[in-house]
């Protein structure tokens, strides 16, 4: 059983964030939504662990 990591974990946070924005640059709202959806699915598959995924869903639901 593993826990969702909610501590800082990305080296070069600013670079990653810029890359994320960059991926969306110039895209229509529709294309951006599609890109986000693909990204979520790719990352979810990489995580794989259902418990971690459930925790991630909860964390996303309970913020914002």
């Amino acid at each position: 059983m593993s826990d969702l990591n909610l501590k800082p974990n990305i080296a070069g946070a600013d670079d990653f964030y810029a890359a994320l924005l960059g991926a969306h640059e110039g895209l229509s709202k529709e294309d951006s939504d599609a890109l986000n959806a693909r990204l979520v699915l790719i990352l979810a598959n990489h995580v794989g662990d259902r418990e971690v995924l459930d925790q991630a869903l909860d964390a996303a639901r309970n913020t914002g």
Binding site: D33, A34, A37, R38, V40, L41, I42
Partner: peptide, 9 residues
């Protein structure tokens, strides 16, 4: 959107 993303991937 999610369904189409699954199909594209």
């Amino acid at each position: 959107i999610l369904r189409d993303a699954v199909l594209d991937l």
